[in-house]
Structures are given as C-alpha cells and as structure tokens.
Amino acid sequence: MQIFVKTLTGKTITLEVEPSDTIENVKAKIQDKEGIPPDQQRLIFAGKQLEDGRTLSDYNIQKESTLHLVLR
C-alpha cells in the first residue's frame, strides 16, 4: 500500500509499505529515499509519536495515510 510522509519543509514523500511493516522499517525506507538517518527521524500520526517496534497496523495506519516527519 502507499502512504505519504510530509516533511517540515512541506515536501511529501510517497512510500510503498505493508501494514505489517514496523515503524523502524518505514524509517529505513525514508533513509533510502531521503538520506536521513533513522535516529534523527520522528514520525507523527494523528498527533502521536510512533514507536520503532510497533507496526503500521498497530496504529491503524491505512493506505494513503499521511505521516508527519520531524527531525531531531
């Protein structure tokens, strides 16, 4: 499924993921596309910060959901 990741600069990254993918996994995909190390990434969905060990389905993230990427 496709999800979108919006950065603070207003750029939107499109990722191909599975509901069973972990947040860690998603961060690795963002690193592949954008070169941002996962340890600098914070992903936010519905106002919650997403934890590395959880999966997209844990957070009920469905196709075409938009996550927000904050760098630390």
Rank of each mutant, 00 (worst) to 15 (best):
K29F: 04
T66C: 02
L69C: 02
T7P: 10
I36D: 03
E18Y: 07
V70L: 05
E24N: 07
G47Y: 15
R42A: 09
G53A: 06
N25Q: 07
F4Q: 14
Q40P: 03
L56H: 00
I13Y: 13
I13V: 13
T14R: 09
E24W: 10
L67R: 01
V70A: 04
R72P: 10
L15Y: 03
I3C: 02
T66V: 10
D58T: 05
L50C: 02
F4H: 12
I13S: 05
R42M: 14
K63S: 09
L56S: 01
I36L: 08
V5F: 04
D58K: 03
S20G: 09
S65D: 04
I44C: 03
L8I: 13
L8M: 14
I61K: 01
Q40C: 02
T7W: 12
V26L: 11
P37S: 15
E18T: 08
R72Y: 08
T55V: 08
D52T: 05
S20Q: 15
L71T: 13
R54C: 02
P38R: 15
L56G: 00
M1E: 03
E51H: 11
Q2N: 11
S57D: 15
T55L: 10
V70N: 04
T55H: 14
P37V: 14
G10P: 04
Q40N: 13
A28W: 10
I30A: 02
L43P: 01
K11W: 12
N25P: 02
K29V: 05
D21L: 14
I44S: 14
E64N: 13
E34D: 11
T66Y: 13
S57Q: 15
A46F: 09
A28P: 01
K48F: 14
G10T: 14
P38A: 12
S65W: 04
N60I: 05
E64Y: 10
Q40S: 14
V17T: 14
D58W: 04
V26C: 02
Y59W: 03
L67H: 01
V5G: 01
E64G: 06
Q62P: 12
T7Q: 08
K29Y: 15
R54E: 05
S20R: 12
S57C: 03
L67F: 05
G53E: 12
K11C: 03
A46T: 05
A46Y: 08
T9V: 06
D21P: 00
P38W: 14
Q31D: 12
I36T: 12
S65C: 02
D58F: 12
I44K: 05
L67D: 01
D58C: 02
K33F: 06
Q62V: 07
Y59E: 07
D52I: 10
L71I: 06
L50R: 00
V26E: 00
E34N: 04
K63W: 09
V17C: 02
E34G: 05
D32L: 12
T7S: 07
R54N: 12
K29G: 07
Q62R: 06
D58G: 05
L43F: 06
K11D: 09
D21A: 12
G53D: 15
D39V: 04
T12R: 04
N60D: 08
T22Q: 11
Q2F: 14
T9C: 03
Q2D: 12
G47A: 06
E24Y: 15
N25Y: 10
I44Q: 09
Q31I: 03
L50Y: 01
L69A: 03
T12D: 10
V17W: 03
G10E: 07
